[in-house]
Design a binder for these strands. Sequence first.
DNA 1: CAGTGGTCTAGACCACATC
DNA 2: ATGTGGTCTAGACCACTGA
Lengths: 252, 252
Amino acid sequence: MLLTEGLDGGLRPSAKPLYLQVKYSLLKRIVSGEWKPGAMLPSELQLAKEYGLSQGTVRKAVAGIADDGVVTRHAGKGTFVSSYNSDQHDPTRFRRFFTQGGRRLVGNDAHYVSCSSITAPDLVAEGLNIERGLKVTEIIRTRFIEQRPVLLESIYLNSVICPNAEQVFSETKPAAIYLALEQAFQLLILSVDEKLVSRMPSHEERERLCIDKGIPVLEVQRQAFSLDQRQVEFRVSVCPGNGEICYWNHYQ
Amino acid sequence: MLLTEGLDGGLRPSAKPLYLQVKYSLLKRIVSGEWKPGAMLPSELQLAKEYGLSQGTVRKAVAGIADDGVVTRHAGKGTFVSSYNSDQHDPTRFRRFFTQGGRRLVGNDAHYVSCSSITAPDLVAEGLNIERGLKVTEIIRTRFIEQRPVLLESIYLNSVICPNAEQVFSETKPAAIYLALEQAFQLLILSVDEKLVSRMPSHEERERLCIDKGIPVLEVQRQAFSLDQRQVEFRVSVCPGNGEICYWNHYQ
DNA sequence: CAGTGGTCTAGACCACATC
DNA sequence: ATGTGGTCTAGACCACTGA
């Protein structure tokens, strides 16, 4: 099947570059579920034949979605849709909390405090970019370092995108939320937006995190975006400001 | 002048790819000062001739340093070494503090509190990765939003890399530190490493930032790296945790 | 106008993974 | 042995820039 006709190519002088059109075409096909997370894409030669283009042009398109983290490539093996359930997935990709000194990651195990369907409070509705008063799934968890609670997570999921998520999560209580979202709802989280503030903890937060009065907390508000750019998750993470844990960031 | 002989190419079977060798060769030449910030590199064809390679291979090398932010390219014009003093430089590149609501950037103007040469405290020596007891330049500044102080910056510069920086900065009191580092010391800052914690402010910080007792602060410790990966700057930024200002982060 | 980077092709060869 | 992605070449054409 030649797909070149669907592309905006050739005749018109200043159309978008072919490799970009192919890139977005491939993205669409992945979003549509044609290739699910973990599945192998056709080879460059096959895709080139399919689109009626040269291998080099298709290569540039695939390299683009690889840069975006949508697929990963392996010489000799092939090109695969990214998955949280694969060998080369980096579990620290969206985890920025480390110990101050040795930079040890906050433990992977999580204790589920609660898991229910609630009416979105204003902050959550804003964070998920939905109407006020809509239902959302709320998951509250704590995470530990050597049995000490160091992180309190409040996770909110858009119930339109993740129907009955409270059931899924309360039954399986998965440690990795994004892997669960991928497996239960075919949602691939690819980017996040975070906002950090310092504030005093509430009484409940002090209790859950076992922190003394007068100690502040670091709050991280995260919006997580899926492959198709939908706002799937809003998460508030709170960690004690006693110097044990901190948030690391590197960028250019 | 053919530079191919200097490359690890051709005969040995599993040498590094040529385009990577060219990339690092170009990086070296930029670090050495052969092309200063703002200067134009030779065209692809010239470089290809110089290295005795095809245009495509050199293109890939230049694209690599462009991805790293070392150079910027413009069709029809040429390839230029990145500079904080250029049209297309994004002044928000290393500035993550914005207002909570409208996401307005913290003002560009800064009030210089002090500027002197001091013996590095332990935290600073660690942050600059130098021996304890060495001299460093300390710059203390405050930044404002509508005349209200919202950010207290303590900036430390490695005196070996930036000799007599305290003079340079106390005389010109530049708003943009990295532009000044580029112009005074030919240092191009390309990446930073940051560590964020929540804590209570000191008495002095409370005064400088006009914050009430009981309000915590967000502290950002930054290590800044130059083109040649040297640790040039260590910076501690402190902002009040009253919800006015927060730290934004986006990543994949 | 000439020179720049950006796109696209067609083909060769390589290293690696799998059977 | 076959198929995969990765490198490299040589050349064509394009759009944009600035003299």
